[in-house]
């Protein structure tokens, strides 16, 4: 086995943060995408959307600030940023479906070379539900996936065709893994960058 470890979760998040531009409204998924918030340059004005009804999410609260009525989509207690607004779930998804969100960064189990994404169910296992993922990927202006390059069995999660039930079709623009950064162009993965020390990343 190779000794190459590639990027850490935090380094992947930092790489994903480079996708964010000043003035963007961004939805961050659960897991590594949540860490992206820690890497947004302070000089940028960026609004983070939480699909349970908040635009302008900020960090975790202090013990004194905790409010049961203020949570993110991962059900964690949070705080609001300056300029934040609250709205209903229907308005939240009008914002998403209506393409008012500039960028969606989320995790996945598989991404195919034509931009299909699978991240909500594994046949034979208890299905938890898709939450807002299908809405987010089907209508975002730009979808960036952040995930480990291979699964526990060492198989590439960047595949020719997804074998798992799909979350959305032909919707992923870019994939950031521990091994590198890959764009989807004309139905193929193209290597944009490899993590330091990585000489090869398995692609279909």
């Amino acid at each position: 086995m190779s000794e190459i470890t590639g990027w850490s979760r935090d380094e992947m998040a930092k790489k994903a943060a480079e996708e964010i531009q000043d003035g963007y409204s961004v939805n961050l998924g659960i897991g590594i995408p949540t860490l992206v918030a820690n890497h947004i340059p302070e000089k940028m004005s960026v609004m983070l959307q939480s699909e349970n009804g908040l635009l302008g999410m900020s960090g975790f609260p202090t013990e004194a600030e905790i409010d049961a009525d203020l949570i993110n989509a991962g059900k964690q207690t949070i705080t609001t940023a300056l300029g934040a607004s609250f709205f209903s779930s229907a308005d939240s998804f009008a914002m998403i479906r209506g393409q008012h969100i500039d960028l969606t960064i989320l995790g996945a189990m598989e991404v195919s070379q034509n931009g299909d994404i699978a991240n909500w169910m594994i046949p034979g296992k208890m299905v938890k539900g898709m939450g807002g993922a299908m809405d987010l990927v089907s209508s975002a202006k730009r979808v960036v996936v952040v995930m480990q390059h291979t699964d526990k069995a060492g198989q590439s999660k960047l595949v020719e065709t997804c074998s798992l039930p799909l979350t959305g079709v032909n919707c992923v623009n870019k994939v950031i893994t521990d091994l590198g950064v890959f764009v989807i162009e004309k139905g193929k993965f193209k290597v944009l960058e490899l993590a330091p020390g990585v000489t090869h990343a398995p692609l279909p």
Partner: peptide
Amino acid sequence: FLSGALDVELTPQGTLAEKI
């Protein structure tokens, strides 16, 4: 759910909100 005692209709969150 697994025992069949419960029926579940999973609906995307935005679609659920808009259906309502």
